[in-house]
Each structure stands twice: as C-alpha cells, then as structure tokens.
Design a binder for these strands. Structure first.
Lengths: 206, 206
DNA sequence: GTCTATAGGGGGATAGAC
DNA sequence: GTCTATCCCCCTATAGAC
C-alpha cells in the first residue's frame, strides 16, 4: 500500500464530495457526510478546500466539464458522418449517465438555483455547441434538402432530452413500469439503438 | 378588506410554501423564507402545519396531483382521437409548465431523494397511466398496423420528455441560444405545434 | 389566531495538539 | 497532514403573552 500523500487525500475528498453533492445537491449535502464518505475528519476537508462553497464550485466545474468533454469530441470529429454522430452521441451519453445517474438532475438543479449559476459563464458551452462541425453538417443537410427545417436548437434539445430524461425520471419510470434495475438497464440499452432512428424520422417530418 | 380568517391564512402559507419549495427544494427552503413570503410570523407556520416536514408533504402531494390532474382528464377522454390527444397533452403540459416552470425539476429531484420518495406510493400513477383509454387507443393502432411496435413506456417517456425538458434546462438553453424570455416563450409556443408532429413521425419510424 | 422571545440542535468553520 | 475539541451562527420548533 502506498503511503498517503497529499494528492491521494485530496482526491479521496473530491470523490466523496462528488458522490454526496450529486445525490443530495448543495443544500442537502453536509460537510460531515462528505468527510465520513471520504474516511477522513471534518477539519481536514477545510484544510484542503477552505469551505463547502469552494469545494462545491470545483465539483460543479468538473461535472460540467465531464459532461461537455463527452460531447465536444464527437461534435467536432471530422471523420464521422452526421448519422454516425447521432449514434455516437446516444451511445456515449447513455453510457455516461448509466455510470453517473445523478449527474443530469444535479447539474440542472444547481444551474437553476443560485449555486451553479455562475459556473455556466466560465464555460464556452455556446461556442462548443454552435460552432462545432456537427452544426455545419446539420446546416449542409438542410441546404441539400435532405432534412427538414427544424431549427438546430430544437433539434439538440430533443436529442439531449432523449438521452437525459430517462435517468432524471428513473424512480417514477421504475414505479410506473414496475421495472427492476435490470429491466431499466435493458430499456436504456434499447434506447441506444432507437434514439438515432427516432431523431432521423423527426428530422424528415416537418 | 375582508377579515383574515383561518382559511385565508392557511392558503397564504401554502401558496408561499409552494413557491419556496419549488424554487429551492426541501433542503434549500427555510421556514423563515416561507413565513416571510407569506407575510406572517414563523410561529404561525408551525401553528397551522406542525412542522416543515408536514407542510412539505402537503405541497408535494398537491404538486403531484396537479401534475396528474392535467393528465388523467385527457388520457381518459372518450371523445378525442389518439392524434387529438397528442395535441391536447402538448398544449396542456406546456401551458402548465409555462406557469409553473420549477414544477418538473422540483418533483423529479424530491422523488429521487428521500423526501418525496414515499409520496409516490400513495398515488395510483400506474393505474392512471397504464389503464387509461389512451393506452387502449395506442394498442388498437398498433394492432391495426397504423403505428410501429414502440413499447408504450418508451412512447410516453418520449412524449413527456418533449414537454418537460425545455423547462428543466431553461437556464442553459437561454444561455446557449442567447434567448431572452420572450424568445424562449416563442420557442415553447412552436413546440406546442411541433411535438404532435414529431411524435407521430417517430411512431411510424421503426 | 397571531405575535415576541427563546430554547434546542445541527452544521460550517477554526484553534491547537500531535 | 491529520486529528480532537469547540465556537458560533442559523434554523426548526415551542412557550407564553396578547
């Protein structure tokens, strides 16, 4: 076993903070919960990250980057077609959210309340999305008349909602559908295949 | 000015609690905020509703019922066709969420954390949805081969996500799209028209 | 019913020993 | 760098006057 260095402790705390913040949100998370989850003392948390607020901002920023990193790679890949990108996006996001099921609702909740509202400004989300190669491919297809006139914003909104919503609504879905975890996973798996098909049919609809 | 009766005060408090809980969630909401919002003293809140927890459960239950009341009426209407129901659902939900933009994320967040998890069991969501006339119409259309084999659960999931997601992601959407409130409203308005079209095209896709 | 005042506890942060 | 002990504020809830 390696000796406990600064960095390993810092990582343990961040990992614990991520878990607790994601599942309980900023207001619901207690620094004592985080310390316990990390297997360290409360005082040590403040030694590494001056305050709960600072720690939160780091977690929030990294969560956001994790979210976007999955995206930007695909969005700017010059070697994949538009159709292939649809498959890649569904594949990647559903996989990410299967591993981090609390991530979507955490981010949307905190962005809407005061806590994360600042973070969004420090990130060039807009340019990543609207100046990507994906947008160009979309515009080209529209110019060629191969897809309908749906505004890109509506299109991305729909694509994202297909990926994100099942995880946000997971408790209700399991309850209504009477699904066990394995069946829920199977449903998500099926969506990986269907989302690109659905999206394409919508693009040709109006 | 009418004299302040019991009921008017109780209503004022509930109204204030709804606002504060919806925007901040259970953990983030402070009883002092609610009292101030209601224009009454903190002690009075506990006089009417023994505790924050009890008050929350009432708000949660009523929010859920509000959500489902919009739904069940349409779902069991014998006089409207399947296609008409799609239009009614989009129309009603987008209108509801335009008035109560915090409602979706509030409910999904609280259902996923401990607070609202119990409430879901006291409501026959499952029967309302899965035993509705809407389901029967869906099954009939499938039997006649007029729509594809998409499982009803996936279908409802998609329909709901179309309505709900724009409001949950509103801050990001406004930021990315550079939309002012009026433009956001216009986008939602356009979705009222487009959602039924999109859904129908998906149903014929696979 | 409605208020003021306050008890009681929980949670964030720090002092200081090791 | 890590711990124990503790401060202190804020929040929920109640006691008691009106």
């Amino acid at each position: 076993m390696a000796p406990k260095t600064d960095e390993s402790t810092e990582l343990k705390i961040k990992e614990a903070a991520r878990k607790v913040f994601h599942s309980k949100g900023f207001a619901g998370a207690k620094t004592r919960d985080i310390a316990e989850e990390a297997g360290i003392n409360l005082a040590l948390l403040n030694y590494y990250f001056r305050s709960k607020q600072k720690l939160f901002e780091i977690i929030m920023l990294e969560s956001m980057q994790q979210f976007m990193h999955s995206m930007s790679g695909v969005f700017n890949d010059m070697d994949s077609s538009f159709e292939e990108k649809l498959e890649l996006i569904a594949e990647r996001y559903l996989k990410l959210f299967s591993q981090e099921p609390d991530l979507p609702i955490f981010m949307l909740t905190e962005l809407r309340q005061g806590q994360g509202a600042e973070v969004i400004k420090h990130i060039n989300l807009r340019s990543i999305l609207l100046e990507s190669y994906f947008v160009k491919q979309y515009a080209d297809l529209q110019a060629e008349g191969k897809i309908g006139p749906m505004p890109f914003l509506q299109f991305v909104l729909n694509l994202m909602s297909f990926c994100v919503f099942p995880f946000m609504a997971a408790p209700i879905i399991k309850h209504i559908g009477g699904l066990k975890d394995a069946e829920f996973t199977a449903m998500v798996e099926e969506r990986k295949r269907l989302i690109p098909i659905w999206v394409q049919s919508m693009l040709r609809a109006d």
